[in-house]
């Protein structure tokens, strides 16, 4: 069983969200991927205004509505527009079909504005995904590092979080998050550097590591290669490829009556 935590409509051939999603699923089929978590629209913005935020979430809603048995939607939120973000959380998750939250680079995630979002997302049992990078050069102005992320997670110790990209510079990212049992590592969206998965399993435990691709910008292949190429036990591989994500999503899937 393979579930992909980290997919986008951007970078995929198609004129509509439904076409992009269909194309992505067709390619995922060749890789044996059963389920895809998708977030953000066909055209991205790092700091989306309210209208843009709603448009991007609408596009994801269109895409997942067409393929309800293959996809899960995460709502894209911008903490700079807190009221709008909370409203989007209600519209897309509480009253809509989405099951997770995506936070990107608009604002550093250690900012207190994120707390109401996290609190409401946790009430809804939504999966919370925060993008992070440790860049040797400069991060984007609002781009969080795993250290920022740890501050947020420590303020909400009972809430599970996913550390997007594990900081990109994973040797530093894994170290940053390893003391927080509530935090999961996302393997997606970096080069398939040998040793990533082995270190994550060694330092975090296989039950805290989740496969994702970051398709369409990344290939499914390069990111699956991190799991298939890793020198880890088969049981760990199964956890990473799908069982961990499934376990993390079960509370909200049950609450929404979504059968898998």
């Amino acid at each position: 069983m393979i579930w992909d935590l980290h997919c986008h409509l951007s970078g995929v051939t198609g004129a509509t969200p439904e076409e992009c999603m269909g194309q992505l699923i067709a390619i995922a089929d060749r890789m044996g991927i059963e389920r895809l978590c998708v977030y953000m629209g066909m055209k991205w913005s790092q700091d989306p205004e309210p209208d843009d935020l709603r448009r991007q979430n609408d596009e994801v809603l269109q895409a997942i509505t067409r393929f309800p048995d293959r996809t899960f939607g995460f709502v894209y939120l911008n903490p700079k527009h807190l009221e709008v973000s909370l409203a989007e959380l209600e519209r897309c998750v509480a009253k809509g079909p989405m099951v997770g939250v995506k936070l990107w680079v608009a604002k550093h995630c250690n900012a207190p504005e994120l707390d109401p979002i996290i609190k409401r997302a946790a009430e809804l049992k939504a999966v919370i995904f925060q993008h992070t990078w440790f860049k040797v050069g400069a991060n984007y102005p609002g781009e969080s590092t795993p250290s920022d992320f740890v501050e947020l997670a420590e303020r909400h110790p009972s809430v599970p979080f996913i550390c997007g990209h594990t900081g990109g510079d994973w040797e530093r990212g894994i170290r940053a998050i390893r003391h927080l049992r509530s935090v999961y590592a996302d393997l997606a969206g970096s080069d398939p550097v040998a040793g990533f998965t082995e270190m994550a399993v060694r330092e975090l435990g296989a039950e805290r590591v989740i496969y994702g691709s970051d398709a369409g910008g990344r290939s499914f292949a390069s990111q699956l290669g991190k799991v298939y190429g890793a020198n880890i036990p088969e049981a760990a591989r199964k956890l990473i490829l799908g069982e961990n994500l499934k376990r993390l999503m079960l509370p909200i899937l049950k609450a929404k009556g979504i059968k898998i």
């Binding site: 398939p192 550097v193 040998a194 290939s219 499914f220 390069s222 290669g225 298939y228």
Partner: peptide, 18 residues
């Protein structure tokens, strides 16, 4: 780009593309 990259990454690309 082995051994710096997992070999499987490149090989699986042949499967991903038709």
């Amino acid at each position: 780009h082995a051994p710096l990259f997992y070999f499987e990454s490149a090989k699986l690309k042949l499967q991903e593309s038709l």
